[in-house]
Design a protein around this nucleic acid. Structure first.
Lengths: 131, 131
DNA sequence: TTGTATGCAAAGCGTTTGCAGTGAT
DNA sequence: ATCACTGCAAACGCTTTGCATACAA
């Protein structure tokens, strides 16, 4: 990271404010509040830069393009609401994944993604509009 | 599924023979052994059809396009070797995922992806070439 | 004979890159 | 004054779709 720019600052601020993983499009919309001329290419370039500097972390969910969140959140996993498509962080993690492995395999890391209804969309509630 | 075709049969056979999740490109290459004129569009169309008929299951790993495997394998998860990039099925699954959820959230399903070294690539072994 | 399925090529879609101009240092 | 950064538009890679032809029924 070499220079401070309005755009980069707006992108990082958007991620901090959202406090959940955002898609590049979501970042674009949010950061344009501060920098209306912002282009999508700049969002992608800065997300990559910020990930490279470990200020931002890429959240890869199965079957969809990566989202991004601030990096200082420690080990956690993600919950995707099947009604509104928003993604939330979930804390602590199950232990004992090693025992799933066949003999001779070694475990380096793992991803867990949970799917269901979030508080807003649960049970009889009228779901929020998707994402 | 309405008609039997050589192409569809070749695609399904390739998946059965591989016994692990394959990318559409891998399916194309394998199925062309039986049907050399096969086109990639037909692979995609048939994978979608076969998934619709629950004969094939889409395996979505974080950060990469879906792979496909035969559907009659029951509940399991996946292990991706960080050296050779092959994906393996792993059996039984951890319980107790519900306790990860914040209050008010309900759990419908989950994905677990493990990463590490497979038997062939483990420890001091010279890794296989990447997929 | 009928109409689903196929192969090709063009179109989509999200992401990346080339380039000339902008602006932080 | 530099040169990293930006915005635009073109390029990319993977997947989907339109269309005329082929072939299972």
């Amino acid at each position: 990271m070499q220079r401070y720019t309005q755009q980069r600052n707006a992108i990082l601020n958007a991620l901090v404010a959202a406090a959940r993983p955002m898609s590049p499009q979501e970042v674009l919309v949010a950061a344009r509040e501060a920098t209306p001329s912002l282009g999508i290419a700049t969002v992608y370039r800065n997300l990559k830069l910020l990930v490279g500097d470990s200020l931002v972390h890429a959240v890869e969910l199965p079957g969809e393009p990566p989202r991004y969140e601030v990096a200082d959140l420690g080990h956690h996993h993600h919950f995707k609401c099947t009604a509104c498509d928003r993604v939330f962080d979930v804390g602590e993690c199950v232990a004992d994944l090693k025992r799933l492995l066949p003999a001779g395999f070694t475990l380096e890391r793992h991803d867990i993604t949970l799917y269901g209804r979030c508080r807003d969309c649960g049970a009889g509630a009228r779901p929020r509009p998707r994402r």
